[in-house]
Amino acid sequence: MDSTKYILGIFDDPDEMMKGIDSLKEKGVSIYDVFTPMPIHGIENKLGIKESRLPIAAFIFGCIGLTAAFCMLYYMLVYDWPINIGGKPHFTAPNFVPICFEWTVLFSSFGMVFTYFYSNHLFPGRTPRVMDLRATNDRFVIAVNAKTNTQHDQIDSCLKEAGAVEIKHNDRKYVSYE
């Protein structure tokens, strides 16, 4: 029995890697993931990844921040302990704007970033799940699950044709657990 778990097609050029993805898809090979040292424009569409909903999260968190700030200010200045400051009204709405704005931004950015960290399992101390160490440097790596895609030779030739500089048959999923 073949002990290969993952087949990695390693490219040194993003455009060739994109070609590789195309030809693998033509052959009906499902792609596990792609690891690149930089964002690749248009790859989400190719791999059928839905548009990120993080902006919506940011909007919701922003609304929460705005509400929180306004409620806090209103409670403290108007309801709980109104103070006479130079005879001005207690409810000085224009003066609330700066802090309301700051909290909108604060909540929306922190909320979004932490949602991002949460959804991608990013946190300090997480073991990096890296399949090839050069994928963060200068290699563009297509990973194919060798268990579900069994025609290994075809995958190899496909990747080779697209211009892969190296093809690895890895027995373990991540190299970074040593």
Binding site: D33, V34, F35, T36, P37, M38, P39, I40, I43, E44, L47, I49, S52, L54, P55, A58, G62, V105, S108, S109, M112, V113, Y116, F117, S119, N120, H121, L122, F123, P124, G125, R126, T127, P128, R129, V130, M131, A135, T136
Partner: peptide, 24 residues
Amino acid sequence: FGWNGSVKTWQRFEAVSLVLAGVA
């Protein structure tokens, strides 16, 4: 933080950068 450069990490990273730029 265990960054590995997968497609989804990058895709969301870009969304986050853009929105952060928008609010910043």
